[in-house]
């Protein structure tokens, strides 16, 4: 019993364990797996990242007026869904130009509200891709 009293007394003089999160930022470790980012000029449209993704969060959808690029022969456009991605880094290991066209930053993904392209609008894009 007396050991518990001594422990409770020394706890008075220690710092609290809680982090005051919304006011001060949390320290992130260096290897944190965050959002995937895409640069359009470096991409060679080989479609290897689309085949490598397990849940199918990267889609190249046919559209009418793409950005003019020599390597884009079938007029495709890149679409990404951060609410379907599982952040496993398989797409970057499959890409031939790994750190230039597709990189993984350490930013955290954003919170979605009503009106973002989360579930039913993404189904429309999947059907567009299959229909062609």
């Amino acid at each position: 019993m007396s050991s518990q009293f001594i422990k409770a007394f020394t706890n008075l003089f220690k710092k609290p364990q809680t982090t005051t999160y919304p006011q001060d930022a949390i320290e992130r470790t260096e290897n944190y797996r965050g959002l995937i980012e895409y640069t359009e000029n470096e991409c060679i449209y080989c479609l290897k990242c689309e085949k490598a993704c397990p849940p199918g969060a990267i889609l190249f959808v046919p559209c009418e007026d793409p950005v003019p690029n020599d390597k884009n022969k079938k007029s495709l456009k890149y679409e990404y869904n951060p609410w379907l991605c599982i952040y496993c880094t398989e797409c970057i290991r499959a890409c031939p130009k790994a750190e230039l066209a597709l990189t993984q930053s350490d930013k955290k993904p954003q919170i979605g509200v009503k009106g973002d392209r989360v579930n039913s609008e993404w189904t429309i894009l999947e059907q567009l891709k299959k229909g062609v």
């Binding site: 999160y21 919304p22 949390i26 951060p82 609410w83 991605c85 599982i86 952040y87 955290k108 993904p109 954003q110 919170i111 979605g112 509200v113 009503k114 973002d116 989360v118």
Partner: peptide, 20 residues
């Protein structure tokens, strides 16, 4: 009303979701 992403999400993102 609110969608929180991540697999699995971290407590930092859950606190963001609850504040919103």
């Amino acid at each position: 009303d609110v969608y929180v992403p991540g697999c699995a999400s971290s407590p930092e993102l859950i606190i963001d979701g609850v504040v919103k």
